[in-house]
Design a protein around this nucleic acid. Structure first.
Length: 376
RNA sequence: ACUCAGCUAAGCU
């Protein structure tokens, strides 16, 4: 089980499945827990239907799926956007006499909110409360995050109040979630108030708190304040990580402060915090948008030299840069390269290319590409 | 008995 678990965690599902088969051959039949590990691994890689087959396999062996089996699958269906399948499975589990637990309720609340079903999510909150007496901070956090991501920040704030009234102590995640929600709603000053509030009551802001605020300040065109915040966090012994640096680099870059962004990238490197694919993509985007395509390609080479693999966003960034520089042919060439390297283009790739072709007056090719996309 | 599942931050059109 441990090995299968490890394989699943490194997304090596095929290897995990091989090992599962080997177990039976070697006279050590998998237990329900083994199947649960596999089900979870499959769900996390988006293979919900395959995961569901294993639920059926458990049943066909006259074993009983546990609450873990069902909850992983419910979560998987929600994450795949299959709300009805998730709900159906929940009903099925109850019908089979398997009682939901807090994990199950959390999956339901998060999933329903992600699907925009606020009322239903609130009902599940109530049910969960009745079921276990009191709710975990994590359950409230999931609810707050879901509401924030639906741009219902005020409702999210009300949930925080409810949580406090119910005697549940908010955690650093609770505050971080709300701060991020407020920042994304361009309400940075209110986010800063929460930041003060949490500090005052002894809940220490962490690197995520700071990073959320930095991003909020960036996106409200307050990059200087964002920079200061990095100094502040350092002085308080909270170390910026690759996400923090990348966030600030993005802010600088989008404010056309490319050289400062580049300096910061070097600084993080010197401090032993390695730039990742996101950091590079941000820098590339800055160069492209500043019409410095050649420098962008040099950086791309450096990125490769340092063993950082470009992903679909990296390619899209360059494709866009090339299109805007009237180099649509080279952009198309990059599309080929992506396909060759096994990096799947997405909707942004095609949108960018189709727009680029159209703007260049190459309408036939644009239409042809549209045709290819709709056949995908 | 042991082994499995749940919350927050950055990039492209």
């Amino acid at each position: 089980n441990s090995v299968i678990h490890g394989l699943c965690r490194s997304y090596r599902i095929p290897d995990a499945l091989d090992l599962l088969k080997e177990m039976s051959f070697r006279g050590c039949p998998p237990a329900v827990v083994t199947y649960n590990i596999i089900i979870d691994g499959l769900c996390k890689t988006g293979a919900v239907d395959e995961a569901y087959q294993f639920l059926l396999e458990i049943i066909s062996k006259d074993c009983n799926p546990t609450v873990v089996s069902y909850t992983c699958l419910i979560d998987g269906f929600f994450k795949a956007g299959r709300v009805d399948d998730a709900k159906k499975l929940f009903e099925e589990m109850v019908k089979h006499g398997c009682a939901p637990n807090m994990f199950t309720f959390n999956a339901l609340i998060g999933g329903l909110l992600k699907a925009g079903k606020v009322e239903e999510a609130h009902k599940v909150m109530e049910d969960a409360g009745k079921n276990d007496g009191s709710l975990h901070a994590m359950t409230y956090n999931i609810c707050i995050d879901g509401l924030c991501k639906l741009s219902k920040v005020d409702e999210a704030c009300k949930v925080l109040e409810k949580m406090e009234c119910a005697g549940c102590i908010p955690t650093v995640v609770t505050y971080n979630t709300l701060i991020d929600g407020l920042c994304k709603a361009k309400r940075v000053d209110e986010a800063k108030q929460i930041f003060q509030q949490m500090s005052n009551i002894g809940c220490h802001p962490d690197v995520i708190t700071y990073t959320s605020l930095i991003d909020g300040l960036n996106k409200s065109s307050r990059v200087n304040e964002a920079r200061e915040l990095v100094d502040e966090m350092r002085s308080l012994g909270c170390h910026p990580n690759v996400v923090t640096y990348s966030t600030l680099i993005d802010g600088l870059s989008k404010a056309s402060r490319i050289s400062e962004a580049q300096q910061l990238a070097e600084e993080m490197d010197h401090r032993g915090c390695l730039p990742n694919v996101v950091t590079y993509s941000i820098l590339l985007d800055g160069l492209c948008k500043g019409s410095r395509i050649d420098e962008a390609f040099n950086l791309m080479q450096e990125m490769n030299r340092r063993g950082c693999i470009p992903d679909v966003v990296t390619y899209n960034t360059l494709v866009d840069g090339l299109c805007k520089a009237n180099k649509v042919n080279e952009a198309l060439q990059l599309l080929k390269e992506m396909l060759e390297k096994g990096c799947n283009p997405n909707a942004v790739t095609y949108t960018t290319l189709i727009r680029g072709l159209s703007k260049a007056g190459r309408l036939e090719e644009a239409q042809q590409l549209m045709g290819e996309v709709s056949r995908l």
